[in-house]
Design a protein around this nucleic acid. Structure first.
Lengths: 274, 274
DNA sequence: TTGCATGTGAAGATCCTGTGACCAGGCTCG
DNA sequence: CGAGCCTGGTCACAGGATCTTCACATGCAA
């Protein structure tokens, strides 16, 4: 159902935030160190002991690829060239043993983004990878944010607007941001959290702005999509987004239940604010 | 013509292919070698013996900057950070004498794209610079050189001009670039985005240039194509391009409707009504 | 019930944008 | 060399849209 879809999208997005990196190398020590560091950073590491097909690389949806050309053996240059040509958005870092200037020049000319010489510090390699990814990202087409449909409404980040039945809800920028934020998560968001992520700084004690905006949002949602409840209040905590037809009491009962699977219970504790 | 050349880094790049590079260094031999190689490649090299103001860098409309942090002395890190922050599209390469891992890590974290250790081969340095620039340019929006018609106007990138009914709008270079950028996207573009892509560096807080140019654009569009609205304001967000006849109330209603140009909504839940 | 927390409406403050005037720098032409 | 023009960019003001605040009503929990 739609609720499930929303949760799925949010989860996917969270997973997508993890950088995906593949390393083609056979040095166990190197891999181990790298693996440890990257795990701490929350990256997604895939170790490969030899060249894989381009299609396999494509399917991995990588952000970056680190490769020891020595592992590739003959044909390494062609491989490098094909990879860089086929995946122009991929950051490619060659990390290998001692090399000649000519080799490094060749590698870079073929499309590699950087050349590291082993042995090297994992930290430095990571920085180089980050720099390459950063550079790639900056010029990526501004992320085409997909429209999402929840309940009867469609949220279009590209237009900073939500629609119901093709008609705009006429949300203001701030209203939209709050709706967008709420819709991306199925858990309860505390006011402070909402405020901080939308306004960009800490909420002053006793500020009611979030409440007021939630009211405006509900009003517009009600007008555009009557018969549905989208924003639910959790007394003493905050708000939770979940499109629900508001007929029937059982639905309401459901709201009271713990709809989360993973340990968000802590958040539901009656956090007595000062 | 020259007018086109003067206007904006992007324009300069397109107008002729000479890459613009500045080097902050004091090693005459290094500079000499680099200069020779770059001249052969047809690059535009600017040698600097010490740090210059950010604004000066901005006005140089560079593609890349090579800097020896030793020349910068104390405050080099802050300088590096400021440069990288203000000119996110600039390829920054640190090329300096022996350094510690920690220093290299710091430099890269602050936004440098690469770190070369002197002494180094000019050829290799050039490759590194090229790699950084390549990353920068690779994913640039595929420049549509074809004339495109939107509403009543025709945009001709090859002539750097827009026409309505065969008559030129007499746009200046910057006006044209903004119109061209806007016309290539259906989504709302934030001012910062517009600024960054047209001017080539980060917009200063409170800068109203984009607004002013939008006004000038609208004025010329209105004169050349009365009865049409091309640039729409999204309060608190930015501008969006969409040609629309502005007569009649129904048209106004149309504005409020969700533009569905390409059906990527199809992937999502089919808006279950009832 | 009391004590808070939240919903609601409206008014005033604040912010955002449109606009015209103005200034500086560069180029052209005399 | 300077005058004049063009272009890009800044500034201040005005009007309107939006946000915040406040007072009060309502609802929840103990």
């Amino acid at each position: 159902m739609l609720v499930g879809y929303v949760a799925g999208a949010a989860a996917a997005q969270r997973a997508n935030n993890r950088l995906r990196l593949a390393v083609i190398d056979r040095d166990p020590g190197f891999m181990q160190v790298l693996s440890n560091r990257l795990e701490a950073l929350g990256w997604n590491l895939r170790g490969l002991s030899s060249a894989v097909t381009i299609d396999a690389l494509v399917s991995m949806r990588l952000n970056a690829l680190v490769v020891d050309v020595a592992v590739l053996g003959p044909g390494s240059w062609e491989y490098l060239e094909r990879v860089c040509g086929r995946l122009p958005g991929l950051a490619v870092i060659v990390c290998t043993g001692p090399s000649s200037v000519a080799q490094r020049v060749r590698g870079l000319r073929l499309g590699a983004d950087a050349w590291m010489t082993k042995p090297c510090h994992a930290e430095e390699l990571i920085c180089v990878i980050e720099a390459a990814i950063r550079r790639h990202r900056r010029n990526e087409m501004p992320r085409i944010e997909e429209p999402t449909s929840v309940g009867q409404i469609t949220i279009r980040p590209d237009l900073y607007q939500a629609y119901a039945d093709g008609a705009s809800l006429e949300l203001t920028a701030r209203e939209f941001e709050i709706l967008h934020l709420l819709s991306q998560s199925d858990r309860v968001l505390r006011r402070e959290e909402i405020y901080e992520r939308v306004w960009g700084y800490a909420m002053a004690h006793g500020d009611r702005s979030v409440d007021v905006f939630v009211r405006k949002l509900r009003q517009k949602l009600r007008t555009a999509s009557p018969g549905w409840n989208y924003i639910h209040t959790h007394f003493g905590v905050g708000y939770r987004f979940a499109p629900e037809p508001d007929n029937g009491e059982e639905q309401l009962a459901d709201v009271r239940q713990m709809p989360t699977e993973d340990g968000h219970e802590a958040e539901f504790a009656p956090a007595p604010v000062g």
